[in-house]
């Protein structure tokens, strides 16, 4: 057991928060764009997709972490894919049973969760090297960050594209929907705007850090 000898770091808030904010899969790492662009035309679809991904992410991370010492290195990717595919199938059936409407709206993108690089990336780079609790906490952070990003896209697109939030009209009948926002190009426009906002925030923060350092250095 190499990690007990290494004394792995304890679980901190950062284990969880890192995935939500600092390493947000969509806005910072720019991963998993296929579902982020394809099914976020309404808040409801975005939430459904986000939660489905969260479930697959947490469960597969747990199982991969449990089996990390059993899985031989040569077949690890194949094993991860089988594990992920299992949970995707479960989610697929569950959504089909819970809401036919959501199932039809998400279409093939539920099955495509299996190809979401965020999930395989977690399994390969985190769950296979860490204890189960830590892996689960980290995966939950990433999953919630992913859901958050999808919701950001979904609400903007639904408000502009249909004038509603969760199908509740907020502007009244006279509102002119921006049809392009619920079409695929709208996904690109909105994600572009969010990426712009996030990189602007990041840059501003960096600038402030630099300023503070200079201010600290100046008197001395």
């Amino acid at each position: 057991m190499n990690e007990s000898s290494k004394r792995s770091k304890p679980i901190t808030l950062d284990t969880f928060w890192r995935g939500v904010w600092k390493e947000n899969p969509v806005f910072v790492m720019v991963l998993g764009l296929c579902p982020a662009l394809a099914v976020t035309n309404t808040t409801f679809n975005a939430l459904g997709m986000g939660l489905a991904t969260l479930f697959v992410l947490v469960c597969s991370s747990a199982l991969v972490s449990l089996l990390r010492n059993v899985i031989p290195k040569q077949v690890r990717i194949a094993s991860y894919i089988v594990i992920i595919a299992t949970f995707v199938t479960i989610v697929d059936y569950a959504i089909h049973a819970i809401s036919l409407e959501l199932y039809n709206a998400l279409g093939a993108f539920i099955q495509l969760i299996v190809a979401n690089c965020v999930i395989l990336g977690r399994a390969e780079s985190y769950a296979s090297k860490n204890r189960i609790t830590k892996s689960v906490v980290n995966a939950a952070g990433i999953g919630i960050g992913f859901t958050f990003a999808l919701l950001c896209l979904g609400t903007v697109r639904e408000i502009l594209g249909s004038g509603t939030i969760l199908e509740y009209p907020i502007f009244g009948d006279a509102f002119q929907p921006w049809v392009v926002m619920v079409l695929p190009p709208g996904g690109f426009f909105v994600i572009g705007a969010w990426l712009l906002l996030f990189s602007w925030l990041k840059e501003r923060k960096q600038r402030r850090v630099v300023q503070q350092e200079e201010a600290a250095r100046a008197p001395g």
Binding site: Q176, W178, V179, V180, M181
Partner: peptide, 10 residues
């Protein structure tokens, strides 16, 4: 092209 896609009726 943007308004064509956004406001196809108008």
């Amino acid at each position: 092209a943007f308004v064509q896609a956004a406001f196809p009726v108008a």
